[in-house]
């Protein structure tokens, strides 16, 4: 069974990540729990659906009042953190 969804050229998101409405995130792979804000939830959900980076930019700029440059910068940073928490896994 595939448990990861390919998100970018070399990054997969753990499919079993549980995200609640309150922003509570649980990573069953590591047992860690997290708290994320509205935009963070949105990104994780999109990633779980298999969104590509370009899909994400479009989704963020369509949904939130943010320009592409800011979204790009913030996303790069966010991915780094997700990687360090093993929510995103390099392949």
């Amino acid at each position: 069974m595939r448990t990861e969804v390919r998100t970018t050229a070399n990054m997969n998101i753990n499919k079993n990540i549980a995200i609640s409405e309150t922003g509570f995130v649980f990573n069953p792979l590591t047992g860690d729990s997290f708290n994320t804000n509205r935009v963070g939830q949105e990104i994780l959900r999109q990633l779980q659906k298999g969104a590509s980076i370009d899909d994400l930019y479009k989704h963020l700029t369509d949904t939130f009042s943010v320009d592409k440059a800011t979204a790009e910068k913030d996303l790069a940073d966010f991915f780094m953190v997700l990687k360090s928490y093993q929510i995103l896994i390099e392949v």
Binding site: S20, T22, G23, F24, F26, S33, N35
Partner: peptide, 11 residues
Amino acid sequence: NLSEFEKISTT
């Protein structure tokens, strides 16, 4: 249950 931990953590 994780839901209890979630509740105290988020609310």
